[in-house]
């Protein structure tokens, strides 16, 4: 296996095809990053909601036991 380019500069240019190849790479990786980050972000929101619900129920319970 040999590195096909003489330098990194040449790898970026790719004999004039660099713009096409690197655009394809960057856009694809961004789209894939989006697919992973989207559930991570929405998970945070759902967990937060459930956590708030749990805390409220806990408060209600302690309040009731104080009154009772």
């Amino acid at each position: 296996m040999i590195f096909q380019f003489d330098s990194i500069q040449q790898m970026i240019e790719m004999d004039g095809h660099g713009a096409y190849v690197w655009t394809a790479v960057v856009v694809s990786l961004l789209a894939m990053l989006f697919l992973v980050l989207k559930p991570v972000i929405s998970r945070r929101a759902v967990v937060e909601e459930i956590f708030v619900e749990l805390e409220r129920e806990q408060r209600l319970k302690t309040n009731q036991s104080e009154i009772g």
Partner: peptide
């Protein structure tokens, strides 16, 4: 794929 695979004879690096 981007650095070590050989170029295509007709299409070059694209």
């Amino acid at each position: 794929g981007l650095g070590f695979a050989p170029q295509d004879a007709k299409q070059g690096n694209s």
